[in-house]
Each structure stands twice: as C-alpha cells, then as structure tokens.
Design a protein around this nucleic acid. Structure first.
Length: 430
RNA sequence: GCGAUCGUAGCCAAGUGGUUAAGGCAGAGGAUUGUGGUUCCUCCAUUCGUGGGUUCGAUCCCCAUCGGUCGCCCCA
C-alpha cells in the first residue's frame, strides 16, 4: 500500500477551511502593517542553512532533508524561513543602500524529526521579518503584530515569554561563567544536561529534570552579562511593549535554538498545545546577513507554526457552510446536456453552482441537493427540455416555480437571499 | 536517535484459537414508472497494516517490519 511519508499529511475538507481562514487573517494583518509577501524556494544550497542556522544546532546536525541533485549540488529542503529570506534580500539587493524592509512569508518547512502532537516533518510556518532596523521599536512592532494575529484568530490562553540573549560576545562570557558554575555539579546533572555542558551550556537552564532545575536556580543570570547597549535595547523593548499593552513574562531561561539570534528572544505559548507549547517564536538576528555575505544588517522576525494554530482553533471550529447556492439536478440525455449549460451560465454570473453528474433518479439527486446546503435546486428533466424551461425549487419552503431558460439567471439572482454575491469576492463564509 | 501505546471496510467501531468477522454512518440499488433531509428492504471486508513463526487451525499467541498516536531530545 502506497502511503504518504512519515510526518506528512494530506489536507482537505473540512480542515482546509480553517487553513484558508487563517491565511486570510494573516494576509489582512500583514497588509494593514505594510508588510509585503515574499516567496522563496523550498530548497536552497545546504551551505546557506549550515552557515546561517549554525553547524552545532540540532536542525543542521540531524534534522535536515539534504540531497544531491543531478548537477552534483548539495541542496536542502528549507527547515525554516529566515535563512532563505535573508539570502534573497542579499542576492536581490532588496535593501539597496539602506532603508527598512518589511517582509512576510508563509509556506512549508521540513525537518527530519519524530512526529508528535504539533510537530510534523513537513510543517508550515507563517513568518515575518523586519530588515535594516536596529531600534527596539521594530522588535515591539513585530511582537505586537504576532499578538494581533493570534488575537484576531481568537486564540486564547497566550503567554509571551521574553528574554535577551545579548550579543555573541555577551554570550561568550556568560557561557564561560555557566560552565564554571555547573562543572563542580556535573555529577548531579541529568545525562542530557551533562552532555550539554560542552555542547550548549545555555540549554541546561531549561532542563526539565527537577534536580538539574534546583541546581540551575542559583546559576548566573544571562541578563547580568548583557553589555550596556544590549541592556538598553532590552529595556526599550519592554517599555514599548508596555505602551502597546502587550503583556509578557520575563524568562531568563528562554534560549532560542538557532545560533543567529541576538538580543531579543521571545516565544508565544499556549497552554492548550501539549508538549510543543510554542505557537510562535522569534527574535532579533543582527549578525545573520553579514554572516551570509551581505552588508551588516540588523533584523528581527518571528515564525508561527500553522499546524499549531490549527490545533488551537480546531476545538472552536464550527460547521462550515459549503457556499453552494444552486444545486442542478438533471436526468435524461437532453436534460443532462442542458444542465451543463445552465450551470455555466449561473457560475459566470458569480452564483455558486453544483452540478449533479450522477444521472441518478430525481429523489436521490434532490436528497443530495438538500444535503449540499444549497438554497435552490434547479431541476431539469426531459419534459422541461421539451418546453425550454426549468423547475426552480426553493429548498427551504419547498415552493417550486417554472422558469424559461432565458430568465433562469435573473430569477435566481432575485430569489437568493442577500449576501449571495459573497461568491464573487472570492472568499468563503467561515 | 530513544521510550510508551495502538493498527479490523471511506469513516466510527464490536469480536473470538476453530464452519458464513457484529453494528452504526457514508455509499449503491429498490418499495406501481420524475421531486428532498422520515420509514422499510437489499447490497457493500474470501478478510482483520505487512511479512514470517507457533498450531491440526489464528484477526485474536510470538517475532520482525511498516505506519499512527503521545512523550524525550529539539523546535513553529
């Protein structure tokens, strides 16, 4: 039996409606804030991620879908969006000699991991990046927009966790202090944390092991190691967030997993998610573009997990109307031929029309008509064809009228309840 | 990569070491020939994820394998 690869899934009704409405909200909020969409390739040179995300990270170390193409290039399915966007900005000189660029994106990402609740191998992210701006206002705006999207989607129980991870220089000093602190206790650390002592000491701080946590409580705090500029920047971000009415909690243990973050790091979590509680994560990455060969460019951004949004919204998802206004029923050669023409005429006038192709008996087709949620059933049999008319049946009250072909469209337009033209706007009712 | 747990039709879901694997939904056909969410009848898994093994005999026991789910690691 052929099946989809592990950690991937097919999306279709009714869940797909939820995706569409999320996408719609995102587009709207991004447009309101003057962000423009960017679509970058699904795969990029492996080196882009290795250099951008960091050789030592789990993503690069064990989670990338890497392959060699027929031209002997090493390519990788993108595990996240920021590296590709940064590459595009550099390569296309989107920032020119300066200025500020606001971009957003949405699309699939790939990481080779064991699937669990809220985590897939192919997953989808919505992301936002502000490039060319070092001020704390950019950080605050980015975080506020994430909150606005979540708010408008109706996601409750959100917590913003905020931290500053300083500059690489700050962290270098802090890292040494941490190693000094933990080394005498290393026998008492859990195995994972002992391993992290050499690989990534900062990670020990958010270990879930109780004994490790007890030890870590007295560890030096990263915030105490921030340089004066990082400190000032952090204070400004906090001040702006207060001005914006964005609630947050300081979390000194919040360390993002990607090497490129500097200063601001934040995460928005929901208590309704299970083990993978973060629905949005991001921060500032002032060194990334330079590291990728571009001009030094301060930047800040975030990414949201689509699957996690969907998970949060699924509980509150109601029944979704099909959007069909007219259901066309026909039986017999001439009638079936004419039904095709009638359906086309209706659609060309923006009336959502479903054509029953089964050729089954009228009672079967009418049953489906009422199940479809359509307002009207348009009935065409040999008798109607002989007279050049159709029967238009109002499925709510059961009334039925005979309408000549030439008047079908106008009659339907008059009969449909106000709001039918929603089909013309290209949006489905949600 | 590690751990736990599960895998019966499109979906939900009973079931037992032994002739024909409940039921429900959906679907198809029909109940005097063309009219709907009701009712009634009929049909719809040579087969219980896959491959081995134990057994006279396995869907039910064992092993492997492939998937799902939840968790660890890590992350959106």
């Amino acid at each position: 039996m052929l099946q989809a690869p592990p950690g991937t899934r097919d999306l279709f009704e009714p869940e797909i409606h939820l995706w569409q409405s999320i996408e719609q909200t995102v587009r709207r909020v991004m447009a309101l804030a003057a962000f423009s969409e960017i679509r970058t390739p699904i795969f990029e040179p492996t080196d882009l991620f290795a250099r951008g995300i960091g050789e030592a990270t789990d993503i690069v170390g064990k989670e990338m879908y890497t392959f060699t193409d027929r031209g002997d290039r090493s390519l990788t399915l993108r595990p996240e969006g920021t590296a590709g966007v940064s590459r595009a900005v550099i390569e296309r000189k989107l920032l020119g000699g300066g200025g500020i660029l606001r971009l957003w994106y949405m699309g699939p990402m790939f990481r080779y991991e064991r699937a669990q609740k809220g985590r897939q191998r192919q997953f989808h992210q919505i992301g936002l990046e502000v490039l060319g701006c070092a001020t704390a206002r950019a950080d605050a705006e980015a975080i506020a927009l994430a909150q606005q999207i979540l708010q408008e989607l109706g996601i409750a129980h959100r917590t913003v966790r905020l931290n500053s991870v300083g500059t690489p220089e700050d962290r270098h000093v802090y890292r040494a202090a941490l190693v000094d602190f933990f080394t005498p206790h290393q026998d008492k650390l859990d195995p994972d944390s002992r391993d992290r002592l050499t690989r990534n000491p900062l990670r020990i701080l958010d270990s879930k092991d109780p004994q490790t946590q007890a030890i870590a409580a007295d560890a030096p705090k990263l915030l105490d190691f921030l340089g004066t500029e990082s400190r000032a920047h952090f204070d400004q971000v906090r001040s702006h967030l207060s001005d914006l009415g964005v609630d947050y909690v300081l979390d000194p243990t919040l360390v993002r997993g990607l090497d490129y973050y500097t200063r601001t790091a934040f995460e928005i979590q929901s208590s309704d998610l299970g083990a993978q509680s973060a629905v949005c994560g991001g921060g500032r990455y002032d060194r990334l573009l330079e590291q990728l060969g571009g001009a030094p460019t301060p930047a800040v951004g975030w990414a949201m997990g689509m699957e996690r949004l969907v998970l949060l919204l699924e509980a509150q998802r109601g029944a979704i109307a099909s959007g069909v206004e007219v259901y066309v029923v026909s039986r017999g050669g001439g009638a079936e031929a004419q039904s095709l023409v009638v359906a086309q005429n209706l659609r060309q006038q923006g009336i959502a029309t479903e054509l029953d192709l089964s050729g089954a008996k009228f009672d079967k087709q009418l049953k489906r008509a009422s199940q479809s949620g359509a307002t009207l059933a348009l009935i065409l049999g040999e008798a109607e064809v002989a007279q050049g008319v159709v029967q238009l049946k109002h499925l709510r009250d059961g009334t039925q009228v005979v309408v000549p072909w030439a008047e079908v469209v106008s009659h339907v337009q008059e009969t449909l309840p106000a709001g039918w033209a929603i089909a013309k706007s290209g949006t489905l009712p949600t």
